[in-house]
């Protein structure tokens, strides 16, 4: 009895989404990033096409590195005060994209003005040729004031802007449409909620092909597996032809690592866990790998060492 053919053939494909625009495309980026395009479950080269490996963004924040854990900060000490230098450094470390978080605009921080935030965006665009992901504050009113200024400041650069949520999607959708950016659609760990948000965004004019989905993120051991399953379920639906779930998936890992005891607890406190220097970046890269296993295509990290580890591992695994 011969080994049966178990190859899966799907009717659906994950959308290819390109972020960034070079001078030929009307922007100033020196490189662009394209994610998605897979025709099967993650990394099964014997049955499907995988035109683009997962892309990695490194996060930089307008509020600096305060609150980031020490093992991560030690890499950033020289650049954290200067967004431009920080972004350039990320490029040097091998990031495919920059994720600029507008944390300073948060009312709990300095409440930086929309214009100042737009200037921050411009500064980063000048300092690096990488494509840009711009992340708001998660405070609806602030985002609605700040993001339109920023999409305008980055007009022509084909950035990814986030996040649009069920309760607050109209303003960001309109400004991304006006300035030709991609929209990051965030819905908490449920494919139904993601689909609903994609429908809402489509209803206000955003093309399904211009969205990237963020099912929210938990670190390995801290809710990761729920999101893992959400992504996996979405992937099955997408490949079976559900156009409302064919958007590539982003997870924002770096931020979550700071909450993980296994990653941040120093060796003196928890000697049984071994070297802290190893654990901290490894938890971040292991979380990233976990998400790639379920289907994520765009991963946001903080720690450059984790970036190196994850990229190396993906290279060995990606078909």
């Amino acid at each position: 009895m011969a080994v049966p053919d178990v190859k899966e053939n799907f009717s659906g494909t994950i959308n290819e989404v390109t972020i960034g625009a070079t001078s030929e495309e009307g922007g100033t980026r020196t490189s662009t990033v394209t994610i998605g395009g897979e025709t099967g479950y993650p990394m099964l080269g014997f049955e499907a096409e995988y035109p683009h490996p997962p892309a990695f963004a490194l996060e930089i924040s307008t509020a600096g590195v305060e609150g980031w854990h020490d093992e991560c900060r030690k890499h950033l000490a020289d650049v954290a005060g200067d967004l431009g230098a920080w972004a350039a450094k990320c490029e040097e470390w091998g990031a495919d994209m920059i994720c600029l978080c507008l944390d300073a605009a948060h009312p709990d921080n300095e409440g930086r003005s929309p214009q100042q935030c737009a200037d921050d965006v411009k500064r980063v665009l000048e300092a690096t040729g990488l494509p840009l992901l711009v992340w708001g504050t998660d405070v609806d009113e602030v985002d609605n004031n700040v993001l339109p200024k920023c999409t305008q400041a980055a007009a022509g650069e084909n950035c990814l802007f986030g996040t649009a949520k069920e309760d607050n999607y109209r303003t960001i959708a309109a400004s991304c449409l006006a300035d030709n950016h991609k929209v990051l659609a965030e819905a908490p760990s449920d494919i139904n909620l993601s689909k609903q948000l994609h429908i809402l965004l489509r209803d206000v004019g955003v093309d399904l092909a211009d969205m990237v989905m963020h099912p929210t993120t938990g670190a390995l051991g801290f809710g990761m597996v729920y999101i893992y399953t959400t992504i996996e379920r979405g992937r099955i639906a997408a490949l079976s032809g559900d156009r409302l779930l064919q958007q590539p998936v982003l997870v924002n890992i770096g931020k979550e690592i700071g909450r993980v005891k296994e990653a941040v607890s120093p060796a003196q406190a928890d000697p049984q866990w071994g070297s802290h220097e190893v654990r901290a970046p490894l938890w971040e890269s292991a979380s990233a790998i976990s998400y790639v296993e379920s289907g994520a295509e765009l991963l946001v990290l903080r720690n450059p060492e984790a970036l190196r580890q994850a990229k190396t591992a993906i290279e060995s695994m990606w078909p």
């Binding site: 909620l193 689909k195 609903q196 559900d242 409302l244």
Partner: peptide, 15 residues
């Protein structure tokens, strides 16, 4: 629960 979330939309999450 899953069906419920998907039905809490007009008309439904699955068009």
């Amino acid at each position: 629960m899953d069906q419920f979330v998907s039905a809490c939309f007009l008309p439904h999450t699955d068009p």
